[in-house]
Amino acid sequence: MGQASSVFDRSKPKWCPGCGNFVVYSCLKDALEELGYRPEEIVVVCGIGCATFIWSYLNTNSLKALHGRVLPAATGVKLVKPSLKVLAVSGDGDAYSIGCGHLTHTARRNIDLTYIVIDNGIFGNTRGQPSPTTPYLSPTKISPRGWPEKPVDPLLLVAVSGATFIAQGYVGNPSSLREIFKKALKHRGFSLVNIVSVCPTFNPKRTITTIKEKILDVGLDSQRDLDEAVKLLLEARKAGRIPVGVIYSRDEPTYNDLLNANSDQKSIVPDLRVLEIALREFGLEIEC
């Protein structure tokens, strides 16, 4: 677990006692250190919600974005500065409710970034409303007779949308989570790491023990093709199991590759090459 002297420490993390975010934070920090990253070469783009407080505690470049708009903001960073390592961090509300639209599009573009979603099945920051991963028909603060919506399955959703790395971790097994992070960070392309987490304050029924009973270890080295990965996810869902490990990993050209945008942008001000375009296209003379 993280040491106090890490270059990635900015300030002491504050969450409720027993919050799963502590585990995610220290595993992520360890993974970054073990892979030898330096704070300057990393940009953490965060949304809104308890999970995203990581941006305050982790000593890196950071962009605290709008609720639900983490992925577009992170995409903008990566498209113009491919030399940066881009991490996007959300909770399940940020990622799968208000920001769900961007998830499929970012996956199908295969933007080279790692999306870390801490999924505790509840809106914790707003004090306990159901989220898109709250179990079907389970009672909540605002739905005593059971929440009438079926949960989003983020792993299946990104699998059919073209994500090239799909993994799931859980906060009850930090050493596995750390290894999953390392695999995801090393992957070139869009990687989603969904972390099954706990919120003892607002979702006390979900505990490490209740999660542990459902864990299905799928290992860290996936050789599955997409069909096999989807099959695994569907079967796990049917059996009420939580697959943990690397579910799918495949090398494909990234969006930057296809746009031929693999070097960092530098603005040339002014860009005099425009004068040629104006003359060529419109016979227009622009005086300097």
Binding site: V43, V45, L63, A65, L66, G68, R69, P72, A73, A74, T75, G76, V77, L79, V80, K81, L84, G101, H102, H105, L259, N260, A261, D264, Q265, K266, S267, V269, D271, R273, V274, I277
Partner: peptide, 30 residues
């Protein structure tokens, strides 16, 4: 792209403005 930059059509205007913000933060006039 002819001048070496990046131009993209995206899923909606929410993505457009937030991508522009990300790109500008990362150093490109956007």
């Amino acid at each position: 792209p002819e001048l070496g930059g990046v131009a993209v059509q995206v899923e909606d205007e929410l993505a457009a403005i937030n991508m522009v913000i990300g790109a500008s933060y990362a150093g490109a006039r956007a």
